[in-house]
């Protein structure tokens, strides 16, 4: 058993060191899809989080609870929901998003929106009310105040973004249902790992797992560096 693992790890390292074309291609595609999804979701969620934080309105608490409940929606459910929308029988069939990277990006955006909005709100609430009043007293309007608070909470929000990216790149429900795991087109880390494992091709899976870990490590180092500068 131990020998088997060592052997597989050796081969995995060999694949990485020799820049195996399939490995590179899957890595680049996975990064492209999940980074795009994270960027788009951030651009949507952070302002929405700011608005939810700033304004007092009826049902605010309920809305936040609802968003927090959505954190734990299984990725397959999100994938299925989107699939039913964009499939040929669905209302959005004409967008031709099924089995495309763009469709996967949209699915991952939907998947991580709740986490990003919820964590943004939490991060903003964590900034003291006095900072908010300071901004207002210095003449900031609603928009400028929200921006100021977001800046104050930037590291917490960045943490949320990284968490969301982690969820996006490691999810398999959307990737398989919307992407369809098409070789050379929509195949990503997670779908490859599950496919290759069931084929008994453990080396490629382990190699991909290593790359995923390496990406997580790099991102965390970046975050630590930024936080250290604060």
């Amino acid at each position: 058993m131990a020998n088997e693992i060592i052997g597989a790890v050796e081969q995995a390292i060999y694949l990485i060191v020799t820049l195996n074309p399939e490995l590179i291609e899957i890595t680049i595609r996975s990064l492209y899809i999940s980074l795009s999804a994270t960027l788009i979701a951030s651009l949507i969620s952070i302002p929405i989080g700011g608005v939810i934080y700033y304004y007092e309105f009826h049902g605010k608490r309920t809305l936040i609870n609802l968003i927090q409940t959505l954190y734990s929606v299984p990725t397959v459910i999100v994938g299925l929901f989107l699939f039913l929308l964009i499939s040929q029988r669905g209302p959005l069939a004409n967008l031709n998003l099924l089995f495309t990277p763009e469709g996967m990006i949209i699915g991952q955006v939907l998947l991580i929106l709740p986490i990003l909005i919820g964590f943004t709100v939490t991060a903003l609430i964590g900034v003291s009310n006095q900072i908010k009043e300071l901004a207002i007293a210095l003449g900031a309007n609603a928009y400028q105040t929200i921006i100021t608070i977001i800046k104050e909470a930037r590291y917490a929000i960045m943490g949320a973004v990284i968490l969301a990216f982690g969820r996006a790149i490691s999810e398999v429900g959307v990737a398989i249902l919307i992407g369809g795991n098409i070789r050379g087109f929509t195949r990503v880390f997670t779908t490859t790992i599950s496919l290759e494992t069931s084929k008994g091709n453990i080396e490629l899976s382990i190699a991909l797992g290593f790359i995923l870990l390496a990406i997580a490590l790099i991102i965390n180092l970046m975050l630590n560096y930024l936080q250290g500068r604060e």
């Binding site: 006095q130 900072i131 009043e133 300071l134 901004a135 207002i136 007293a137 210095l138 003449g139 900031a140 309007n141 400028q144 100021t148 800046k151 104050e152 930037r154 604060e230």
Partner: peptide, 28 residues
């Protein structure tokens, strides 16, 4: 409010350097 200035009882600063803090009112 933009014609007033306020200094709170409890001294407080935004994250960042002194320059950004002082320039805040002007930028806004």
């Amino acid at each position: 409010r933009r014609q007033m200035g306020m200094v709170f009882q409890k001294p407080l600063a935004f994250k960042g350097n002194v320059y950004d803090n002082v320039a805040f009112g002007l930028k806004i």
